[in-house]
């Protein structure tokens, strides 16, 4: 049976400095979906189950209530949910003709906010996060230092989220803390 211990790699650590703060978000369910989202049948049944149209433009995400769907590739999506992941996975696997995998424990999600957030992110990634090319509703997989991340823009405030693999979470968090003192 599934391990009942719910944990995050950084124990929801946070860090603040003048004009910037970073905090690890609470545990949330994550599901990786592989399907032919161009196919009407697969997309319709997934949309019905999720309440969100999975046919996304590349490098964007959609949110409805506590559920978000991120574009990872032409045939791959990532779902954030606070619902019952086990039930969703078995339901989608059987009905929507897609591969659904529970990846809740794969990664950590950091929330970065404050006026300096853009500068902090720019210090670690080659990706251009200027608001003209990376606006609210956009997400991208890119590099931060030596780690692969899923970066998403959540507010013009600004507020960003960085999803990083469990084993790289501490590295990214320490990296962010260090550069935040200098930007």
């Amino acid at each position: 049976m599934a391990n009942p211990v719910i944990a995050t790699p950084l124990n929801e650590a946070d860090f603040s400095i003048d004009g910037f703060s970073v905090a690890e978000l609470d545990y949330s369910g994550k599901i990786n979906l592989r399907a032919d989202f161009e196919s009407k049948h697969a997309n319709q049944s997934l949309t019905k189950l999720l309440g969100i149209d999975c046919q996304l433009a590349p490098n964007t995400y959609k949110t409805s209530g506590d559920t978000s769907v991120f574009w990872l590739g032409p045939n791959e999506r990532l779902v954030y949910t606070n619902g019952d992941v086990d039930a969703m996975v078995s339901q989608w696997r059987n009905k929507a003709g897609c591969a659904a995998v529970d990846v809740s424990d794969y990664s950590s999600v950091l929330k970065l906010s404050g006026p300096k957030a853009r500068d902090v992110i720019a210090s670690g990634t080659p990706f251009d996060i200027h608001p003209e090319v990376f606006s609210v509703g956009d997400c991208t997989q890119t590099r931060f230092g030596n780690a692969t991340i899923l970066l998403s823009n959540h507010s013009e405030a600004p507020e960003f989220q960085i999803q990083v693999r469990w084993s790289f979470a501490e590295y990214v968090f320490e990296y962010i803390k260090r550069v935040a003192r200098y930007v």
Partner: peptide, 9 residues
Amino acid sequence: YCGDRDQTE
């Protein structure tokens, strides 16, 4: 699939 990206990716 993603457009213009840095070589290091």
